[in-house]
Simulated assay, not measured.
Amino acid sequence: MGIKVDKAKCTGCGRCAEQCPGDVIRLDPVTKLPINKYKNDCWYCGVCEIECPHGAAQMEFPCLIV
């Protein structure tokens, strides 16, 4: 889970990766789009979504079954 990116809106600025306090987002070297490098380590804090100047990043929360 973690970050979901709208590829049509993302410019590859890297702000989400720079601001991620868990350091789990990386820019793909080929596409220049953000990827969840360490999906299981995401804190679900939402900083990537808040800091994205283009509204391309969205938090994707895990499905919890109780």
Rank of each mutant, 00 (worst) to 15 (best):
K39M: 12
D41Y: 06
N36G: 05
M1H: 15
T11W: 08
A57E: 10
I35C: 04
I35H: 08
F61G: 00
E60F: 02
I50F: 10
D23G: 08
L27C: 07
G12Y: 05
P34N: 03
Y44Q: 08
E49P: 07
T11D: 09
P62C: 09
I25G: 00
P21H: 12
K9H: 11
Q19G: 06
Q58P: 02
V5R: 11
I3F: 14
D23Q: 12
E51P: 04
L64D: 00
N36D: 10
D28Q: 08
C10T: 05
C20N: 02
K32G: 01
C13H: 04
G22L: 08
D41G: 01
D6N: 15
M59P: 14
R15T: 13
D6G: 13
A56R: 05
L27Q: 07
M1Y: 15
I3T: 06
L27H: 00
V66Y: 09
I3D: 02
C10W: 04
K39C: 05
P53M: 07
W43C: 03
K9L: 15
L27A: 03
A57C: 15
E51R: 12
N40P: 03
A56K: 13
K37S: 14
L27G: 02
L27P: 09
C42G: 06
D28M: 04
R26G: 00
G55I: 12
C48A: 09
L64Q: 10
D6F: 05
C52V: 10
D28N: 15
G22E: 12
L64R: 00
G12H: 07
P62H: 03
D28F: 03
Y44P: 00
V24Y: 02
E51L: 01
C42I: 05
G46V: 07
I25E: 02
T11C: 03
K32W: 01
E51D: 12
